[in-house]
Simulated assay, not measured.
Amino acid sequence: MIGSQNFLLKEEPLEEVLRERVQYCQREKKAVNFWLVESPKFINIPIMNSLKKKLTNDSVAIISTNESFIRWLKLRYHHVGIGFFVTPSKFILNPLRS
């Protein structure tokens, strides 16, 4: 999921939602499988061009291996985009080091 930093970090209670998700993962003894990425570089890969045109420069992304969680976030926050990508790829070699 990706959207404006102003919208997600200032106008909406995203921090509270993510904190609750971490607590859920801890309670259920599950690994935390999402990351908040400010100004994500992956938005510059060619496959993301159409999404990039809709965003301002101050974007923030929530990346997760749990597709259901991302779909739930999209329902919660209407002014965001969602998509998927597979790594490593030609454009994203090691996402954990970027």
Rank of each mutant, 00 (worst) to 15 (best):
P95L: 11
T87W: 13
T65A: 14
R27L: 13
N94H: 12
I63D: 04
S4N: 11
P40H: 03
K90S: 00
R21S: 00
L36V: 15
R76V: 10
R21L: 02
S89I: 01
I43R: 04
E16N: 15
S4R: 03
W35N: 05
P40M: 08
I62A: 04
S89H: 00
D58R: 01
K90E: 13
E16H: 12
L18A: 03
A31Y: 12
Q5Y: 04
A61W: 00
F34S: 05
R76N: 09
I70N: 03
Y24M: 00
F42K: 02
G81P: 03
L36P: 08
W72C: 01
N66R: 06
L18F: 04
K41S: 12
V17C: 02
P40K: 05
L51H: 10
S68N: 12
Q5W: 01
P13I: 03
Y24L: 07
S50P: 06
K74L: 05
I92W: 06
S4Q: 07
K30C: 12
I47L: 12
I70E: 04
K30E: 15
I82T: 14
N44T: 12
I47D: 14
F69K: 02
C25D: 01
I82W: 07
R27C: 07
V86Y: 15
E38W: 00
K53M: 09
Y77A: 07
K52H: 11
I45C: 00
R76F: 13
G81S: 12
I70Y: 06
I82K: 14
S59E: 06
H79P: 06
E15W: 11
P88R: 08
V86P: 06
N49G: 07
N44Q: 12
F7E: 01
D58G: 15
N57V: 13
N57E: 12
S59G: 11
P13C: 05
K53N: 10
T56N: 14
E15C: 11
I43G: 06
L8F: 03
K29R: 15
Y77M: 04
I47C: 09
V80Y: 02
I47V: 10
I63C: 07
V80L: 07
K53T: 06
P88H: 09
S50F: 09
F84M: 13
R27I: 02
L75Y: 11
G83W: 08
N66V: 08
S50W: 06
L36A: 10
I92D: 07
F34A: 03
P88V: 07
I62V: 15
H78N: 03
N44E: 13
I70R: 02
